[in-house]
Write a protein that binds this DNA or RNA. Structure first.
Length: 260
DNA sequence: ATGACCTGTTTAACAGGA
């Protein structure tokens, strides 16, 4: 089973590329971020016509996450628990029936956090604390779990073209990376590190300053697996060529293969 | 040499992104 995560940067602007990519890559499950649409305006019927069940958790203009699945949903949960006042649509979780039992998948759009001096940085750290608490309770089920998304975290110096240029950025500050590693240390496995684990394998290139042409990228899209999912992990792939398509997202898909 | 973007929205400049 192929599971993918992709920050598409707007469903309206990316519908053609998303259709093309789904046809070529044929993921069984796709977790999408930054759909930038309310639920009612999301073109679910296009993807249902391709054989997907579609779950959407959106809001106007910004953020928004979705999950596509060839297999049916048993359960859909919208929003990250822990703060009833948080109105940003950044977390969607689904339980999917597979031949070998239930699989829980989340689509995550973790806050960027810049500028660091603003209220956005403490919001990021608080959101990560909530994610850690929620991941801890999900791990207690001892079932296959995949937390996939745009984490807005550069894990190591090997995951950025120029570490010095990012030293003071919310994506790379020691406190941000420590919060990310604290989540992993609950007992999750990063699919990339467990398989490919090579330096300079980026998932995002800025639209500005010729970042793509110069390969000035960062690796910020991750899939974190529970032990029961990690046992079934057989591969991880970054779909780099999509960044060179017409009208690309600034992120590319990251896929894993699970033997379920 | 330097800098050069993209998306969505109250469709003309903004806000937000990373």
């Amino acid at each position: 089973m192929k599971i993918a995560t992709w920050n598409i940067n707007g469903i309206k602007a990316r519908i053609t590329n998303l259709e093309r990519w789904l046809k070529e890559a044929e993921p069984d499950i796709a977790c999408l971020q930054e759909i930038k649409s309310v639920d009612e305006n999301f073109p679910s019927e296009v993807f249902e016509g391709m054989g997907y069940n579609v779950a959407v958790h959106g809001q106007k203009s910004f953020n928004g996450v979705a999950i596509f699945s060839k297999l049916p949903f048993d359960e859909i949960n919208k929003g990250l628990p822990g703060d009833e006042t948080d109105e940003q649509a950044r977390y969607l979780e689904a339980v999917i029936s597979t031949a070998s039992g239930a699989l829980r998948v989340a689509s995550i759009y973790l806050p960027n956090g810049n500028p660091v001096e603003s209220e956005k940085y403490p919001y990021k750290l608080a959101w990560m604390e909530r994610l850690k608490n929620h991941a801890r309770s999900l791990l207690a089920f001892e079932e296959p779990l995949v937390l996939a998304g745009d984490y807005n975290i550069i894990p190591t110096e090997q995951d950025v073209y120029n570490p010095k240029a990012w030293a003071d950025d919310a994506l790379f500050l020691p406190e941000s990376r420590a919060a990310y590693h604290a989540i992993i240390n609950l007992g999750l496995t990063s699919a990339f590190e467990a398989t490919l684990n090579q330096p300079h394998r980026y998932t995002f290139w800025d639209y500005q300053r010729g970042a793509w042409q110069k390969d000035h990228g960062i690796r910020i899209d991750h899939l974190l697996l529970s032990p029961q999912a990690a046992d079934k992990l057989s591969g991880c792939h970054i779909d780099r060529p999509t960044r060179g398509w017409e009208k690309p997202s600034d992120h590319v898909p990251v896929c894993i293969e699970l033997d379920v």
